[in-house]
Amino acid sequence: MILVTGATGNLGASTINYLLNKGYSSANIVALVRDEEKAADLKNKGITLRIGDYSNYESLIAAFNGVEKVLLVSGTDVVQRGNQHENVVNAAKDAGVKHIFYTSFERKNDTETSPIAFLGKSHIETEKLIKESGLTYTIFKNNLYLDALPMFFGEQVLTTGIFLPAGDKGGAFALRNDMAEAIANVLTSEGHDNTEYSLSNTENVTVQELAQDLTEITDKEINYVSPSQEVYVEALTQAGVPAEYIAMFSGFAEAIKQGEFVAETTDLENLLGRKPTTAKEFLEQVYGS
């Protein structure tokens, strides 16, 4: 039996859909949810719902009862995530779970000097905790989602161009649904014990190349400007963007600039059994006519 946490979120829900599409029985899938009303779609598909919260250890113990595999989809509460993940790992061990799978992130810099250390710290701590737990594990190092690019570009990208302090490094950004399919493939096959997989695309693309792709797709001249961090932060502040979003946008932009998401090797293509969706194909889906 497989339990998927964060089952009503994008990655968790997509992974469950791929499990079903591959013929895995709904009777053997458990969805961990906080609110049963938000999981009506899963229930209608025959998925067993168990109510639990990363911050409630006892609820996790009860939810994991009889489960062999747990997919821990990383939590979204950046402040509490480290403690929450510790609860999940300890509960999985105490409940007799055999194998834990964890969605972490692709990076080069594990230190506090990383521009996304505020997000990465809990991932790194969770990886360490899992490896020391004695549980069989599989860790997915997810690259930056292609799905996040429109958010970084802004709603007016087709008229104002791309204004982002991301330099010229780029990265092997990959589609979230491709990652979900790869994860489902791993969950339903053997040979993944105590293994780490890089879920990156097969090609690295720069933001300048993304701008050129947008130009071709939309038949509009899309310029890319990479300002200094100071100019960028000031521009977003003047535009009324909340401080927490400015910190996130600027942090990820600097991470791209420093090459944190550049990947020389990847396991995604092999796990999918096909080429992953390219950045240009994604942009065509979003911005094409």
Score class of each variant (00 low, 15 high):
Met1Lys: 14
Ile2His: 05
Thr5Ala: 03
Ala7Met: 02
Gly9Ile: 06
Gly9Gln: 08
Gly12Asp: 01
Ile16Glu: 06
Ile16Tyr: 01
Asn17Met: 11
Leu19Asn: 08
Asn21Gly: 13
Lys22Phe: 13
Arg34Lys: 13
Asp35Met: 12
Asp35Leu: 09
Leu42His: 10
Lys45Ser: 14
Lys45Asn: 13
Leu49Arg: 04
Ile51Asn: 10
Asp53Lys: 08
Asp53Pro: 03
Ser55Arg: 14
Ser55Trp: 05
Glu58Arg: 07
Ala62Glu: 15
Ala62Tyr: 04
Asn65Met: 08
Val67Phe: 12
Leu71Asp: 09
Leu71Asn: 09
Ser74Tyr: 11
Asn83Leu: 14
Glu86Met: 12
Glu86Leu: 14
Asn87Phe: 04
Val88Trp: 02
Val89Met: 04
Asp94Glu: 13
Asp94Val: 00
Gly96Thr: 07
Gly96Met: 03
Lys98Glu: 08
Phe101Ile: 02
Tyr102Glu: 06
Asn109Arg: 00
Thr111Ala: 06
Ile116Arg: 03
Ile116Leu: 04
Ser122His: 12
Glu125Cys: 02
Glu125Ser: 13
Glu125Lys: 13
Thr126His: 04
Glu127His: 05
Ile130Ala: 07
Ser133Tyr: 11
Ser133Arg: 10
Thr136Gln: 14
Ile139Phe: 12
Lys141Ala: 11
Leu146His: 10
Leu146Glu: 14
Phe152Val: 08
Phe153Gln: 07
Ile162Cys: 08
Leu164Asn: 10
Gly167Ser: 08
Asp168Cys: 05
Ala172Leu: 09
Leu175Val: 03
Arg176Gln: 15
Asn177Ile: 07
Ile183Cys: 03
Asn185Thr: 07
Thr188Cys: 06
Thr188Ala: 08
Glu196Thr: 15
Tyr197Gln: 07
Tyr197Asp: 10
Ser198Trp: 10
Leu199Cys: 09
Asn201Trp: 02
Asn201Cys: 03
Val205Ser: 11
Thr206Ala: 08
Gln208Ala: 15
Glu209Gly: 08
Leu210His: 00
Ala211Ser: 11
Gln212His: 13
Leu214Gln: 06
Glu216Tyr: 07
Ile217Phe: 06
Thr218His: 06
Ile222Pro: 07
Ile222Leu: 05
Pro227Gln: 05
Gln229Lys: 13
Gln229His: 07
Val231Gln: 14
Val231Ser: 11
Tyr232His: 07
Tyr232Pro: 03
Val233Cys: 04
Leu236Glu: 01
Ala239Asn: 01
Gly240Asn: 01
Gly240Ala: 00
Gly240Phe: 01
Pro242His: 00
Pro242Ser: 00
Ile246Val: 11
Ile246Gln: 02
Ile246Thr: 01
Ala247Trp: 00
Gly251Glu: 00
Phe252Asp: 00
Glu254Tyr: 00
Ala255Asn: 00
Phe261Ile: 01
Ala263Val: 01
Ala263Pro: 02
Asp267Asn: 11
Glu269Phe: 00
Asn270Gly: 01
Gly273Leu: 09
Lys275Glu: 12
Thr277Pro: 06
Phe282Asp: 12
Leu283Ser: 09
Leu283Tyr: 11
Ser289Met: 11
Ser289Gln: 14
